[in-house]
């Protein structure tokens, strides 16, 4: 279990992180979202003891993280770094050895990991000869191959295509099922929403949202409707309580004043019987992200 309590860090006059608190249990995934410079990387560095906090505590299994815990950590930094002249195998074996895993164990496991992430290249290929995407995958393998219990991934999905992003998602889920505590940051809200048990949104170092994805979305009420019905755009715009109407192909996406407007809208849309689509939901995380950013500017 990772417990972060009242973590604060300032860089001169600049706010790094302000009074940040959260807990990640075994088998839990926490998604950290926020704009660039919101304090995500600073949070990770403080968890890893790479940066001393001004105040607050980080506890791993109820004690401060020391070098004895390094072997249980898997860390993917935001700025990727590999020894470009080393072979894939040498590179992964070295990083795993630094986490206390014997070279023989790593060598045995590596081919499976290579297959799993569909890395294009031989074990003896130099890192510099790989494409950027494949380098990224090698770095991910190096982060996960020693079966860490505390996994910290800074923007793991950046640079991956949807197929590879899915492979990574699957691996993260598997690590979670093995009991790891996982924290990751991402700009892709779809990924965050799919795999996170818990969400934390930072803005200029302050925690603006915290909770499960459903909790967070429901805070904003069921105010989004997607509709395909005989009602045309003019009728929808004129409908009382509808704030915004956007046409998406055959369908309309509406923003409502409040959840109750949906009931009236459903009645009106179905007055002549069957309609192919009516769905009322809270705003998407993507939208919430933009709302929160806009609210504080």
């Amino acid at each position: 279990m990772l417990t972060v309590a009242n973590l604060t860090k300032r860089f001169g006059p600049k706010q790094g992180v302000e009074d940040e608190s959260f807990t990640i249990h075994e088998g839990e995934i926490m998604g950290l979202i926020g704009q660039n410079g919101a304090g995500k990387t600073t949070t990770f560095r403080m968890i890893l003891n790479l940066l001393p906090p001004d105040s607050g505590t980080v506890l791993w299994q109820d004690h401060p993280l020391t070098k004895d815990d390094y072997n249980t950590v898997g860390f993917l930094p935001e700025e990727r770094g590999l020894y470009t002249r080393m072979s894939i195998q040498d590179q992964v074996v070295y990083f795993a050895a630094l986490r206390g895993q014997k070279p023989a164990v790593t060598r045995k496991a590596l081919p499976q990991w290579m297959a799993r992430f569909n890395v294009k290249g031989k074990l003896t290929d130099k890192i510099k000869d790989l494409s950027k995407g494949n380098q990224q995958k090698v770095q991910l393998i190096a982060t996960l191959i020693h079966q860490p219990k505390l996994i910290i991934l800074d923007e793991p999905f950046s640079g991956l295509d949807p197929v590879n992003a899915q492979l990574l998602e699957d691996s993260i889920i598997e690590m979670k099922q093995n009991g790891a505590s996982i924290i990751f940051s991402s700009h892709d809200m779809a990924n965050v929403e799919r795999i996170s048990d818990h969400l934390l949104m930072l803005r200029n170092g302050e925690t603006v949202l915290s909770g499960t994805p459903d909790e967070i979305r429901s805070q904003f009420g069921n105010t989004r409707v997607r509709l395909r019905s005989p009602l045309d755009k003019a009728a929808l715009v004129a409908f009382p309580g509808v704030n915004d109407v956007q046409q998406r192909g055959n369908a309309y996406e509406l923003t409502l004043d409040n959840e109750a407007v949906g009931h009236d809208l459903f009645k009106a849309a179905t007055s002549k019987g069957y309609i192919p689509e009516f769905s009322q939901e809270p705003p998407s995380l993507d939208e919430i992200f933009r709302i929160e950013v806009a609210n504080h500017e």
């Binding site: 890893l48 390094y70 700025e79 770094g81 020894y83 990083f95 630094l98």
Partner: peptide
């Protein structure tokens, strides 16, 4: 190349 971040969090 920021390899140092991995190194320092390992050793």
């Amino acid at each position: 190349s920021h390899i140092m971040e991995i190194l320092v969090s390992s050793v």
